[in-house]
Write a protein that binds this DNA or RNA. Structure first.
Lengths: 185, 185
DNA sequence: AAGTAGTGACTAATCAATAACTAAATCCGA
DNA sequence: TCGGATTTAGTTATTGATTAGTCACTACTT
């Protein structure tokens, strides 16, 4: 009784394992962001995709692996976004902020996921979080250095601190917490 | 069969409801910090205090209330610490940093608790977190203003951002993430 | 006939929360 | 000052719900 709703589907949306994986990940991001890792259930993820709950476990070994994959996806997007930075001089800083602000608007759930991962006491999840943070920090430092900025380490640290405060402001729904700079927009 | 281990206890440690409450809160901070809100069990908290699991529910209505109380305790300590700030001029900034660093050393579990609370999707807990953040931000802004600093809002925002990055660095066990300032220690 | 994509039914474990109880301390009126 | 009532501090036993994860199966497709 596979795919009862589409006995002859369009060629663009074959139900391959690969795009099921993507669908599940997308649903997982939304469900985890809404309810948190522990309260979110695999049944909710399955429901959002329109598959049965056990099928989730055919694609992902367990819930932890699903979360780690969803988190990895979120970090991949950030990395891809920052990889686009090419501007030289201190204009790169403004551009980096803009890129991140764009990301927060288009993929808020992936930001929420990160904030959640900060506090989850689970080896695999913490490991994924450490990896992600290291990648982002390293990448941004490379871009700041390439742009010829002085004290890139300090600037990256400040950038990360303000980025994190943005994430937190969003997660807590406290817009007043968002970073305030001297240069007003 | 109450208090089987101490039929005649020392007068300094009467098992009143009030100090049981304190004992439970202290254990809760430790247990929540180690395992996270959802993985931590009320049985673990009880065990650490040396009481039965159901007794926890005689003192706290439910697990959520226990966590909220533990979180409140953590914020109270931060507030008390910052209330001590009296220095004038931009020296107050250095002092604030020092006070917070002291706190992180003496009460790391309360810091971990806060990072966890950032990501917990629960109305009461989020509310407590918002309250705490507002109190701290307001208090620090008052102190910075009283010290005669220019642009206190910007300085507070930067201070909070760096403080949060410290918290995150601790929670993720990534010391390399700690804020880097220009003025080296 | 073999692989791919999927399901329905179930289970095993975990845990917050409750109910029903007891043992000691303290109070208090005759 | 004796002994019953009440309060305080705690316990044991249990349960009700939830939910990750498994198993055995089916139906298309190639």
């Amino acid at each position: 009784m596979a795919r009862p709703s589409s006995p002859n589907r369009g060629k663009g949306e074959e139900a391959t394992a690969v795009n099921r994986r993507e669908q599940i990940l997308e649903a997982a991001v939304a469900v985890f962001a809404e309810h948190g890792y522990y309260r979110a259930t695999t049944a909710q993820v399955a429901e959002q995709v329109g598959i049965s709950q056990p099928y989730v476990f055919k694609i992902f070994k367990n819930k932890e692996e699903l979360f780690v994959a969803a988190l990895g996806r979120a970090f991949d997007r950030i990395v891809r976004a920052f990889e686009g930075l090419e501007t030289a001089g201190d204009q790169v800083l403004r551009e980096a902020i803009q890129v991140y602000e764009q990301l927060m608007e288009t993929h808020p759930n992936e930001i929420i996921l990160q904030v959640q991962a900060l506090g989850i006491r689970d080896e695999a999840i913490r490991g994924a979080m450490q990896d992600g943070m290291r990648k982002v920090t390293g990448l941004v430092e490379g871009k700041f250095t390439a742009a010829g900025l002085d004290h890139p380490e300090v600037l990256v640290s400040t950038f990360m601190a303000n980025g994190m405060l943005c994430n937190i402001a969003m997660s807590l729904e406290m817009p007043e917490l968002k970073p305030k700079h001297l240069e007003q927009e």
